[in-house]
Every structure is written in structure tokens, then in C-alpha cells.
């Protein structure tokens, strides 16, 4: 399903906070339907970059387009076409599953009918239809995470940004979560994911590795492993990080 269209394009993306350069001339492209991994240690500048791409932060300089829209002028349009999920899951714990769906669908301007239809479809896919009227705080972590992901795609975004979506989640749940990501990518939705779990990096089609605000490597995991003559992304990362 994936086309070869470029859906995220960044040329010399730079973000400075005073004298501190958080993102230093990042240049990369992401294709539609691709699972693009954005790797780096904590503080490498991943979150800053993702916030810029989501329209939450204005870049200091650089030319950036997301879903075909300019991040300086068309943040409004960008926001309509992206989904976002952070490590905190972003569900309201004191609301029921359905109330969360209804609320998030509502803020993206979906009609009541569309929300009901979409919620039914997504819950069915997760096999969580029975949990529709349960309060979120009563659900296990893995369910919450899947629900958060489903809610992030309720408005059929072109791109979904996942900011460390699996931190603090057990390996089995992580594995299931990645199955969901694959499925979504197969439907043509682009996945832009940051993580510091290097085993997860293997699941990505392409990855970029950030160190101190700069992109120091970018390719498929296999190509990077070959390039550094190692077996896993973990080792690739260690080699890069140690310079």
C-alpha cells in the first residue's frame, strides 16, 4: 500500500534554546506508510524534534513540511492530519473507554455518528468491546496502551507520532503493541516513533540515530548493522554513542 510519496520533509531543522542547540541541522525524509524510528539517548533532542513536527514548537530555522504543510504557517492543517501519543498514554483515567473515544473524536471535529462507528470498529479490532463502559483506571496497562493508540488514530491521521510509547511496559505488551503499529502502517498510515529500546529499533523500516542534537546515522537497521559490522541495533547504537 505504501507509496513513495514523501510525507515528512525536514531540511536543516534547527532549534536553539538560548545558547543551547537542541536540534542541529537535522535533514531527513519520511515516506508515506513507513515506520520511521527516531533513536537517541535521553536528552539527545528527540522530543524537541517531535514537538516541532507536531506544531507544538516553532523551529529556529530550517525548511520543514509535514503532510505537505509548512510548519511555520500551516500548523492548523498539520494538526488535523496527525495523531500523537506520548509515554503517558494520555487517556483520562476517570472516564470510561467510550467517554475517552467520544471526547477525543469530538476535539477532532468528528460527528457523533462517526465517533460511534469508528469506536465500534476500533474496539472490535482490539477485542475490547466488552470494556467499552469500564473506567480507564480499572484496566490493565497493556489495554490502556492499545486504547491510547486507537484513540490517536480515531480521526484517520496521515502520520502518527509516538513519543516513547512503550516506556515502562513489559516485553509481551510491547510486542503486541508493535503488532498494532505494523497493522496500522499497512493501512498506509506513517509511523514516526521515538524510542530508546534498541530491540524496538529492529522493528522499524528505517531509523535515524541522534547524538547531542545531531543525526549521526540514518538507514535501515540491517544496513546500519552491516555498516558497523555488528549483529544488533543495540551494538550499533553503542558504537555510535561511543564515537
Amino acid at each position: 500500500m505504501a507509496e513513495n510519496g514523501i510525507i515528512i520533509k525536514a531540511v536543516n531543522l534547527t532549534k536553539k534554546f538560548g545558547n543551547f542547540v537542541a536540534n542541529d541541522n537535522l535533514t531527513f525524509e519520511v515516506r508515506q506508510g513507513e515506520i520511521f524510528g527516531f533513536l537517541g539517548a535521553n536528552g539527545a533532542g528527540k522530543t524537541t524534534a517531535i514537538r516541532i513536527l507536531c506544531g507544538l514548537l516553532k523551529p529556529t530555522s530550517g525548511q520543514i513540511e509535514v503532510a505537505g504543510y509548512d510548519v511555520y504557517k500551516e500548523t492548523e492543517k498539520i494538526k488535523r492530519n496527525i495523531g500523537y501519543m506520548s509515554q503517558k498514554f494520555s487517556l483520562y483515567e476517570d472516564l470510561t473507554v467510550w467517554e475517552n473515544f467520544r471526547f477525543y473524536g469530538g476535539i477532532y471535529g468528528l460527528s457523533g455518528k462517526e465517533i460511534r462507528k469508528k469506536t465500534g470498529y476500533l474496539l472490535d479490532k482490539l477485542q475490547l468491546t466488552a470494556a467499552r463502559d469500564k473506567i480507564i483506571s480499572s484496566l490493565p496497562l497493556g489495554w490502556k496502551q492499545k486504547l491510547a493508540f486507537s484513540i490517536a488514530i480515531i480521526h484517520d491521521p496521515k502520520i502518527i507520532f509516538l513519543d516513547e510509547p512503550t516506556s515502562g511496559v513489559d516485553p509481551i505488551t510491547r510486542r503486541q503493541f508493535w503488532d498494532m503499529i505494523y497493522e496500522t502502517a499497512h493501512e498506509g498510515i506513517t509511523i514516526f516513533v521515538t524510542t530508546h529500546y534498541m530491540d524496538e529499533a529492529e522493528y522499524c523500516e528505517r531509523v535515524s540515530v541522534m547524538v547531542d542534537g545531531k543525526i549521526v546515522a540514518m538507514d535501515t537497521p540491517r544496513a546500519l548493522e552491516d555498516k558497523y559490522h555488528v549483529e544488533t541495533m543495540e551494538e550499533v547504537f553503542l558504537k555510535i554513542a561511543r564515537g
Binding site: C54, G55, L56, E76, K79, R80, I82, Y84, M85, S86, Q87, K88, F89, S90, L91, Y92, E93, Y104, I107, Y108, G109, A152, F161
Partner: peptide, 13 residues
């Protein structure tokens, strides 16, 4: 605190 504010800010609201 819950991180939902981020999601609201990313939304078209």
C-alpha cells in the same frame, strides 16, 4: 501532569 494537555495541544483545538 497526566500528559493529556500535550494531546490537546497537538489537536486542532
Amino acid at each position: 501532569e497526566l500528559g493529556t494537555m500535550e494531546v490537546l495541544l497537538v489537536s486542532p483545538l
